[in-house]
Every structure is written in C-alpha cells, then in structure tokens.
C-alpha cells in the first residue's frame, strides 16, 4: 500500500504507516510492559496507583521473594519433568507416523492421517471425563504421568502432520538407494531421513515446548497436591499467598514465562514457521 505516489514527489505513505505501526506497537506492548514495571516496584507503590510510570530505581525484592520460595523451585522442576519428556515423545511418535504416511502409504492411510490430524482441532474437554476415570483406575492421579502421557498423545496430530509434510520433500530415490545398499527401513529413517529433517524437528521442538510449558488444563485436572503442580497452576495457587502483593505476582509471571520467552527470542523463525505451516496445511 506504500508505493502509491508518482515518482519524484514526496511520498507520505511510508512515514504514515510507520507512525501508525508505532502507535499500535506501543498499545500492544503496554500489557507486557505493565508486568515488567510491576515486578520492579514495591507493592506499596503499585497500590498507591503508581504502576504505570517508569520507576526511579529498580526494586529487586520481588524477584528475591520469588526465587527464594521453595514452592516455586518445585513447580519449576515439575514443569521441566513434564515438558522435556512430553516434547521428546510426541516428536518421536510424530516422526514414526509421519514416515509411514510419507514413504510407505497404504490403502486407507490418507483417511487415517486425516483422523489423526483432526485430533488437533477438538476442544480437550471432549476427552476429559474418560481420561480422568482411566488414570484414576491406574492409580496415576496426582502424579505427573498422566500429564506427560496426554501431552505426548495430543502432540501427535501436529507432529505427524509436520513430519509427513517434511518427509514428503525428501527424494524417494534416497530411500531406495539406501535400501538397495542393504539398509533397513529403521536405518533409512534414523540415518538418512531424520538428519535431513533438522529444520522440521526444530520447528516442532519450539512449538511443543512452548505449548506444554504453558499448559494449564491437564495439570489442573490430573494433579492435586501442591508438590505435584506445574508452574502455571503454581502461579494461581500462589495468588492466594501473595493476594495483594502485585509486585511479587508480576515477578512470578515473568519468571514462569522466562523459558518460553527465551525460546521465542532465539527460535522465533522456527516458531512462526511452525504456526503458519501447522495452520495452513491443517
């Protein structure tokens, strides 16, 4: 929309658009900035209506409080214990299924693939009650296991989709040549195809890590005691303890988001690619 004015004359469009975008960007950033500000202010300052101004000096007491709280350590550890295995398992399962759908299709494999991909779109509430009963029967309620298992299973649709689409771009001749040389299908997958698929694996790792880390529903349903809670539930629990300690809540939000924020900053390219790929191809 920018290149409308005829050549040679002053073109006001780029500057206008830039200004509009700046205004929107400030509006968009405000909520996040509010949290940042609150985390370095004392609760007294905030409740006196001084949240939205720049602080004269940094107050680090909120962070000290959060990082010194043993409950926060526990929540963090639990979240890591859920996120890392569930991310790894869901991607592994997705790679296995994606390989068959891309390289060893069979009659009905497209329909099967569609069923799996459709799993991405359903509200998780649909399977809540039966899963609760199932894990209750297994005696796994109030452990981290159901959370890990369910995330592994629910990650399969996006992982299978993305891996299939990526594997489809790897030439079949490569696989045939390797099999001629006496490689097994397993070796083709692990030694030939997967090493070529690092970009797709990176996309999935960032997406899955972020989603599982940020998840709220599954740990809410499957865990009960405080030392089994993940960080996102922990934040809600601690809200009682720090009910009007807004600054501590701000610091807590920031600390809890730090891993996903870092992933976003460093792997943004993969992240955006995954979001658009998953969305468009779905």
């Amino acid at each position: 929309m920018a290149d409308l004015a005829p050549q040679g004359r002053f073109n006001p469009w780029p500057a206008t658009i830039f200004v509009i975008l700046c205004v929107l960007a400030v509006l968009f950033l405000l909520p996040t900035v509010g949290v940042l500000l609150s985390s370095v202010k004392t609760t007294r300052d905030i409740s006196m209506g001084d949240l939205w101004s720049l602080p004269a000096s940094l107050y680090l007491g909120n962070f000290a409080e959060v990082l010194g709280n043993p409950a926060v350590h526990r929540y963090f550890l639990n979240t890591v214990l859920v996120t890392l295995p569930a991310t790894a398992v869901s991607i592994t399962l997705g790679a296995l299924a994606g390989y068959v759908f891309a390289k060893l299709p069979f009659r009905g494999s497209n329909a099967l693939f569609l069923i799996i991909v459709a799993g991405m779109f359903f509200p998780p509430q649909v399977i809540l009650v039966p899963l609760f009963r199932m894990f209750n029967g297994m005696g796994l309620i109030d452990t981290l296991w159901p959370v890990i298992i369910v995330h592994s299973a629910l990650g399969l649709p996006i992982c299978a989709l993305m891996m299939r689409n990526f594997f489809a771009t790897v030439p079949n001749a490569l696989r045939e040549a390797a099999i001629m040389e006496g490689a097994s299908e397993w070796q083709v997958l692990t030694r030939v195809v997967l090493p070529l698929s690092l970009p797709a694996l990176a996309v999935l790792a960032t997406l899955q890590f972020t989603w599982i880390w940020n998840d709220f529903l599954w740990p809410l349903i499957f865990t009960q005691s405080d030392d089994k809670r993940t960080i996102m539930i922990g934040i809600v629990n601690l809200k009682g303890q720090y009910s009007v300690a807004w600054g501590v809540q701000g610091a807590l939000s920031l600390v809890a988001s730090l891993p996903t924020l870092l992933v976003f900053l460093f792997f943004q390219r993969f992240f955006i690619k995954g979001m658009t790929m998953g969305a468009v191809k779905g």
């Binding site: 929107l24 960007a25 968009f28 909520p31 996040t32 949290v35 972020t210 880390w213 940020n214 998840d215 709220f216 996102m232 934040i235 809600v236 939000s253 809890a256 988001s257 996903t260 924020l261 992933v263 976003f264 943004q268 992240f271 955006i272 979001m275």
Partner: peptide, 11 residues
C-alpha cells in the same frame, strides 16, 4: 505483535 502468542493463557 507476535509475542503474546508465546505467553501462557495464565500469564
């Protein structure tokens, strides 16, 4: 504009 997507709904 994209940043909020990587935040948890809780946050």
């Amino acid at each position: 504009f994209y940043l909020p997507i990587c935040l948890s709904a809780v946050i």
